[in-house]
């Protein structure tokens, strides 16, 4: 899976591209864990280029959220498309992974 990585203020912004699924979820989780371990526990996952997310992708995001919080940071998601928003809602995860409209919104307050 391809990622674009950048920083915004004190947050690391990670933008995976393509499907966040059974095949690619472990790489996303590993990448976020690496950012957290390197001392950047404030993560924004920019989902604007994610075309489809399944329950494995959700699992990776939840695991990443836990890693970030354990390190004293947090993980927020931004710019999710229709399908990603639907899967979050259907699994009742839109509360702990509240989708922010933009990366700017998600990084506010950091």
């Amino acid at each position: 899976m391809e990622f674009e990585e950048r920083t915004r203020g004190t947050a690391s912004v990670l933008a995976p591209r393509g499907k966040l699924n059974l095949v690619t979820a472990p790489a996303v989780k590993a990448k976020i864990d690496e950012l957290v371990a390197s001392g950047s526990p404030r993560i924004v996952v920019d989902l604007s280029e994610v075309t489809f997310m399944d329950s494995s992708g959700l699992g990776a995001l939840i695991g990443s959220l836990k890693s970030a919080r354990q390190a004293g940071g947090d993980m927020r998601i931004a710019a999710a498309g229709e399908q990603v928003r639907a899967v979050l809602k259907l699994t009742n995860l839109d509360r702990i992974l509240a989708p922010h409209d933009t990366v700017e919104d998600a990084s506010r307050g950091w």
Partner: peptide, 19 residues
């Protein structure tokens, strides 16, 4: 049932059923 919020797996079957 759909697992707890912090579960990292177990959502596939309940999700499919809900759809």
């Amino acid at each position: 049932a759909m697992p707890e919020e912090d579960a990292e797996s177990g959502r596939g079957i309940p999700l499919a059923k809900s759809l």
